[in-house]
């Protein structure tokens, strides 16, 4: 699957990419929300977005809303350093909101499968 990873912290982005690549996905890394939107402008062939929440200029949630406004309806996984529950409450349309921790390598892959499964059933 071709996945866009959005993170302003280069290391965190690399980590997410490493996890996804090891699961056989193709990853395109971008540094911020604006770059992400620009990428979608030129190339829509992404099956999923995995984005950090807290980024300068455009936050992860704002990016999600921009994408939905632009009718880009692919699954969106939000990564956050905070408690995910309030985030899901604020934006229930999010597919998954995950806390960043050492179990990311497992939880992220599970989340992707769950998101895909839900889409298939919907």
């Amino acid at each position: 699957m071709r996945i866009m990873v959005v993170d302003d912290d280069a290391l965190a982005g690399e980590l997410t990419a490493a996890v996804l690549e090891s699961a056989g996905h193709e990853v395109v890394l971008v540094e911020n929300g604006i770059e992400a939107l620009e990428k979608f402008g030129e190339d829509r062939a992404f099956a999923m977005v995995v984005s950090d929440m807290n980024m300068p200029l455009v936050s992860g949630i704002e990016l999600f809303r921009h994408l939905r406004d632009a009718n880009i309806d692919i699954p969106f996984i939000l990564l956050t350093g905070d408690d995910p529950a309030p985030m899901m409450a604020e934006e229930p349309r999010l597919d998954v909101c995950l806390t960043k921790d050492a179990s990311l390598e497992i939880s992220l892959i599970e989340a992707i499968e769950a998101a895909n499964e839900r889409r298939r059933r919907a």
Binding site: L15, T80, G81, T99, K100, D101, A102, L104
Partner: peptide, 9 residues
């Protein structure tokens, strides 16, 4: 966030 991702709790 990043420290948590690397298990540096």
């Amino acid at each position: 966030g990043t420290a948590a991702s690397f298990g540096l709790n």
